[in-house]
């Protein structure tokens, strides 16, 4: 049930699947999407079809079966798709032929969690549980730089995880965020760390009842003017057997090192897996889930939740379409097209 005030999100099309889709990239100006699967495969589909049937990208190069494909990014004028997976590989695909053209076999030492392209499409950033962010030339696939600043271990001496990253709209800044809630903002040109932000409220360490941890910052987004950085995750969890806490976002004026707001979506349980601003700054969309899924809209000015609603499934990634009142979401057992409407 949604607590609609001015907005409504409705499902327009659904593609059911047996696998889990972790990543999504939409080719601008088309209805073609690429999605990364739990089976280690990248699929493409034309969502204009009445009953879209995702087709696997095939070739001599591929990800390891079972290596969750968690990152997809279109780059180099949309001629290339870069996929990153838990098998630590990055693979460059030709978006026309749908064939692999380049591979970096050990792009990272551990699971790749996210792959994003710079706004100009010339650079790829990947983050992984080796706690390194690597920058790659989108055209050649050559390693350009390594950004190291996240701790390898949590304060409790367990391996940490580097979940997400996001470029600022002008491409000059890159933010990376880890399991403990530590966020670093990098100057892309100099490769220097220029600011940090704290979202440790999204990391739960249970020292007594269960003695392990859960949570972390799962999504980042810069506002269209680049001044505000938003981190998405989950609040402190009482019973860490489950994702049993409300979705949570923290807004930062990262240049002034000020936390602007903390937002809890009280009807949405689980992780905020993906965030994206409306191009005009009208709203911020967040999607994610626990055993179910959710979509939330936040007013970027007031930081108020202006829409909360359940999604068909736990959403791991989404992409706004050319018309931002529609978005395509990928997640647990499916792919959906949703429409955001003002009512």
């Amino acid at each position: 049930m949604s607590t609609t005030r001015n907005f409504q999100i409705a499902e327009e099309k659904k593609v059911s699947r047996k696998d889990i889709l972790f990543s999504l990239a939409r080719v601008p100006g088309t209805t073609t999407v690429f999605c990364g699967s739990s089976d280690g495969t990248v699929y493409h589909a034309d969502l204009a079809e009445e009953k879209p049937e995702p087709v696997a990208l095939e070739g001599e190069i591929r990800h390891r079966p079972g290596g969750y494909v968690t990152g997809l990014a279109l780059a180099d004028g949309n001629r290339r798709l870069v996929s990153g997976a838990y098998d630590a590989q990055l693979i460059w695909w030709d978006t026309e032929t749908k064939k692999p053209v380049h591979r970096v076999e050990n792009a990272h030492g551990k699971w790749i969690r996210k792959v994003v392209a710079s706004p100009d499409g010339r650079m790829i950033a990947s983050v992984a549980d080796d706690m390194v962010c690597r920058l790659w030339d989108a055209g050649t696939g050559k390693l350009v730089a390594e950004l190291q600043g996240h701790r390898i271990e949590t304060p409790q001496h367990y391996p940490s995880m580097l979940f997400t990253c996001a470029f600022s709209p002008d491409g000059a800044r890159l933010a990376t965020a880890d399991k403990t809630g530590h966020i670093i903002i990098w100057d892309v040109a100099s490769r220097k760390e220029i600011a940090v932000a704290d979202a440790s409220c999204m990391y739960t360490w249970d020292p007594k009842q269960r003695r392990h941890s859960i949570g972390g910052v799962r999504s980042l987004a810069f506002s269209p003017d680049g001044r505000t950085l938003v981190a998405g995750g989950i609040g402190q969890i009482g019973n860490i057997d489950h994702l049993g806490a409300n979705a949570r976002l923290r807004f930062f004026d990262w240049e002034k090192a000020v936390t602007l707001a903390e937002v809890e979506a009280t009807e949405s349980k689980g992780l905020v897996e993906r965030l994206a601003f409306h191009p005009g700054g009208d709203w911020l969309l967040g999607c994610g889930g626990d055993n179910g899924g959710f979509a939330i809209l936040i007013d970027p000015q007031s930081h108020k939740v202006i829409y909360e609603g359940k999604a068909t499934f736990h959403i791991h990634d989404f992409s706004l379409t050319d018309s931002p009142d529609r978005f395509i979401a990928a997640g647990h057992n499916g792919l959906v097209v949703k429409k955001i409407a003002v009512v």
Binding site: R210, I214, D241, D290
Partner: peptide, 19 residues
């Protein structure tokens, strides 16, 4: 060694506890 009851985020829990 408790608590392995990973109804949520099984893989991250095991990545932490199995090593």
């Amino acid at each position: 060694r408790a608590w392995w009851d990973s109804h949520g985020q099984n893989f991250e829990t095991h990545a932490e506890m199995v090593p």
